[in-house]
Amino acid sequence: MSSKYSNAEESPGFMLWQVTNIWQKAIRKALDPFELTHPQFVLLFSCKWLNEKNDHSGITQVQLAQHAQMDVNVTSQVLRTLEKKGYIERRPHPTDSRANVISVTKSGDVIASQAVRAVEEEDRAFFSDLGDDIGLLNRILKRLANH
């Protein structure tokens, strides 16, 4: 055998892969009524959330990509789609000529608010079997994210 694991369930990477795929399928289904992909939702809601935290002063694409832990080029492509849908606006940054300030439109705010309720409801259902262990899972995931 070419693996040190005698069965697949012993591999944390494989288990994370399986759980991630199952969870992503559930999230895709929750987002279908809003005609948003998961990356579109993450960036749209992150943009809304970060702007609210920053008194609606706008955020840059780099700030958004860093927050979502997403590649800057992928972020740019997704933002282009969200802009075409009328959910975000980009305007020149007041002090950095290379950057744009990204803000959420009224329709983007509405769809983000509706979609986050559906996503959070799906998360509650998906992770409900964990009960009190949800806090432990979040701590472990945070450690991995900060790796």
Results as ranks from 00 to 15, higher is better:
E10T: 05
S11V: 00
F34V: 14
D55K: 14
I59M: 03
F14T: 03
T20Y: 08
N21I: 05
H56T: 00
L36A: 06
V19P: 01
N54T: 09
A65M: 00
T20K: 10
F41D: 02
N21A: 12
Q61N: 09
K25Y: 10
T60D: 01
E52L: 09
N54I: 01
D55L: 09
M15S: 12
P12D: 08
K53Q: 13
E10Y: 07
L44S: 05
F41L: 06
T60I: 01
V42L: 11
V42F: 03
N54E: 12
D55V: 05
F45R: 13
L50G: 02
L43H: 07
L44P: 03
L16E: 08
S57T: 04
W17M: 11
F41A: 04
W49H: 13
L64M: 04
F14D: 02
F45L: 10
Q24F: 09
W49K: 13
Q18Y: 08
S46P: 10
N51T: 07
P12N: 08
L16R: 11
F34E: 13
W23A: 14
L36H: 05
Q66E: 06
H38D: 12
L31M: 09
L44F: 06
S11I: 02
N21Y: 07
T37W: 08
A65H: 00
K48Y: 14
A26G: 11
V62L: 03
K29E: 15
F45E: 15
F41W: 05
K25L: 10
L44M: 06
L44H: 04
Q61T: 13
E9Q: 10
R28C: 11
I22L: 15
C47Y: 05
V19D: 07
K53G: 07
V19K: 11
Q18M: 13
A26Y: 12
I59D: 01
G58C: 01
M15D: 06
G13W: 04
E10P: 02
E35M: 08
D55N: 15
F41C: 02
Q24C: 10
